Simulated assay, not measured.
Amino acid sequence: MTLSPIFETKVLASSVQRWVMDPRSAGEARHALRERMGVWGLADSADVAELVLSELFTNALRHSKAPSDRLIETHFEQLPDGVRIQVHDAGDSVPISREAPDDAEGGRGLSLVDALSGGRWGVAGRDGVGKAVWAVVPAVDGA
């Protein structure tokens, strides 16, 4: 996947937080997202959103090759049709969705993100070093 800009759409509300590069931060970020989704009336979509965030955040921890003193930044944006999740890291490697062998224990995260977001995800540059990996989780009907 090549860099693709984060598409412009009406953002109804947003939340930005920074996290230390520690596996425990992924759980804290998921909790923050679930809380925000409840405030925005999107609680029915929170499970899927948390799974997407978990995949993106874990990729930032595992693959960014950024110094351990760098932070991971999350952006949660309420959209008219769901929530856009962004995970910013200081790494310059661009994630690539690939097909994992049947017996592989990993390598399916971005395929999962692609399926859960209906293909609405990408990688964008950002001010300064690094990148932003983003995905849109649609609102559950009736949410």
Rank of each mutant, 00 (worst) to 15 (best):
M1G: 08
S4E: 11
S4P: 02
I6D: 03
F7Y: 09
K10I: 05
K10C: 00
A13T: 03
S14H: 12
S15G: 03
V16E: 12
Q17M: 06
R18A: 14
W19C: 02
W19R: 08
D22R: 12
A29N: 09
A29S: 09
R30H: 11
R30N: 13
H31Y: 14
H31W: 13
L33H: 09
R34V: 13
R34C: 08
G38R: 15
W40P: 05
L42W: 08
D44T: 12
D44L: 15
S45N: 12
A46T: 02
D47E: 13
D47I: 11
D47P: 03
A49I: 04
E50V: 11
L51A: 12
L53N: 00
L53F: 01
S54K: 10
E55L: 02
L56V: 00
L56R: 01
F57V: 07
F57Y: 15
F57G: 05
T58S: 12
R62Q: 15
R62Y: 06
H63C: 09
S64Y: 08
K65A: 09
K65T: 03
A66S: 11
A66L: 04
P67C: 07
L71I: 03
L71K: 10
I72K: 08
T74P: 01
T74L: 00
H75Y: 14
D81R: 15
V83W: 08
I85H: 10
Q86W: 02
Q86H: 04
D89A: 01
D89I: 01
D92P: 05
S93W: 08
S97A: 15
R98F: 09
E99A: 10
D103C: 01
A104T: 02
E105L: 15
G106M: 12
G106F: 13
G107F: 07
G107P: 06
A115Q: 14
A115S: 14
A115M: 15
L116C: 06
S117Q: 04
G119R: 05
V123W: 01
D127T: 12
V129N: 14
K131D: 00
A132C: 05
V136W: 01
V137L: 03
G142W: 11
G142A: 04
G142C: 08
